[in-house]
């Protein structure tokens, strides 16, 4: 009997419609209007890489130890350095990071002993060319500069 009444009055369908109706309320809107409204990514977000510089003297923190290049599964980091005769240390000359092959796993970041290499919260890394995806030292120190859109 109950089943028959359910069938005649389409109870199950109205039940479902009631759920959708409840969710109509504007407070359930989840769409982010992206270029205008920028998402807030988490603090630990693993995004664009950055080669940190010492804020006091503007010199790079990197000690050219090559550990990040060895840790990377994709071997996409290339570090070159030359020996400084005065300080007897290695000076960083070039640092190349191929973001097109990077999977942002964070192993290079973990490997760095002086926290010079860091994956930051920047996430807008699109370029028009493949070559543009290969970041050099300057790019890594300055970070990407995405266009800011406003409406």
């Amino acid at each position: 009997m109950r089943g028959l009444l359910n069938k005649i009055f389409l109870v199950d369908l109205f039940q479902g419609l009631w759920v959708t109706f409840r969710n109509q309320h504007p407070k359930y809107i989840y769409t982010e209007r992206y270029p205008e409204e920028r998402p807030k990514v988490a603090e630990r977000y693993r995004g664009a890489p950055r080669l940190n510089i010492n804020p006091d003297n503007g010199e790079t923190l990197c000690i050219s130890c090559n550990l990040c290049a060895l840790a990377c599964p994709e071997t996409l980091i290339v570090v070159t350095s030359e020996r400084n005769e005065v300080t007897k240390r290695k000076d960083l000359t070039t640092f190349t990071y191929d973001t097109s092959r990077c999977m942002f796993c964070g192993l290079c970041e973990d490997a760095c002993p002086v926290d010079a290499l860091e994956l930051t919260q920047d996430f807008e890394m699109a370029t028009y060319t493949r070559e543009g995806q290969i970041w050099d030292r300057q790019m890594l120190e300055e970070g990407p500069k995405p266009t800011q859109y406003k409406c």
Partner: peptide, 25 residues
């Protein structure tokens, strides 16, 4: 739509915990 809405909350926790949403490592 509802499922992805709730999944988003779970992914946000992953993002906060380890910095990635899908391929988390």
């Amino acid at each position: 739509f509802y499922c992805l809405r709730e999944r988003e909350e779970a992914l946000k926790i992953f993002e906060k915990y380890c910095g990635a949403r899908l391929t988390t490592h």
